[in-house]
Amino acid sequence: MSLQAPILEVDGLRKVFRGRTAVDGVSFRVAAGECFGLLGPNGAGKTTTIRMLYGFSPPTAGTVRLFGMDLGRDWRRIRARIGVCQQDNTLDPDLSVEENLLVFAGYFAIGRREAAARAAELLEFFALTPRARSRVMDLSGGMIRRLILARALVNRPDLLILDEPTTGLDPQSRHQVWDRLEKLKASGLSAILTTHYMEEAARLCDRLVIVDRGRILVEGRPGELIRKHVGRQVVEIGGPDGALREYLKEQGLPHDDLGERILLYTAGDDGRVAAVREHFCLRRCTFRDATLEDVFLRLTGRELRE
């Protein structure tokens, strides 16, 4: 397989649960060495999509090909080459930290000596060596997450599948996980990642899709998406008045009116934005760079998803 051939090809993937469509025709490609992001609000169909990618859920329609093989037929060979970091803690609480890796290596039919060597290496990489004999129940949230990651790497996968790898972690732990993931990425490991932390996606993903209600809304590189859908900068204007609203409408400036706050999007040197700054920013005003979060909220809306 050439370097340019996609490692993962998803075509027209659909999933219907009891008449409710969770994933509605999703297609994308992931190239070797790429980190691909799957972003979306709760219930967008991210986890359902991920579960179909490693053959946990059978798709209602569509195909998944990994490493040039069909997932429906070659699921066992494919699963031997992927590492999955599930959203739930699926570690074995009956086993120690090290045993978790050794027993899991057994599921991949990795020999005992080889498994022991890999476990030692992974524990070192994830700074878990001092806790090798601890019970999983005694670990902190960050350590549990790192152990799940270590376990997903025990078969030396060609593709790492990460379903919300840092959800629920404190900032220190999150940065530690990001640091390790960046190292893995630098070593050439391909990855597919779901998250609703935009900072995480912007930092780790080469390319991403934003999904909502089971469909892909946009696809692209984080920087491109920001420039295309938001611009370069955002002016947050607190306590806007009627005159400002009138002016924005008159000038046709892209903005979102949140009632108590207006977000004004700008590509940079725009005289009209300067005018807004001068005339309407008398009270609370913030100037900042546009982020992926702005793209996300503009595309998926601001109402709560529960």
Binding site: R76, I82, T90, A109
Partner: peptide
């Protein structure tokens, strides 16, 4: 509770 089978189903086990 332990989701042990979910974890196993991400490996070459059926």
């Amino acid at each position: 509770y332990q989701k042990t089978f979910d974890g196993m189903l991400a490996t070459p086990l059926s």
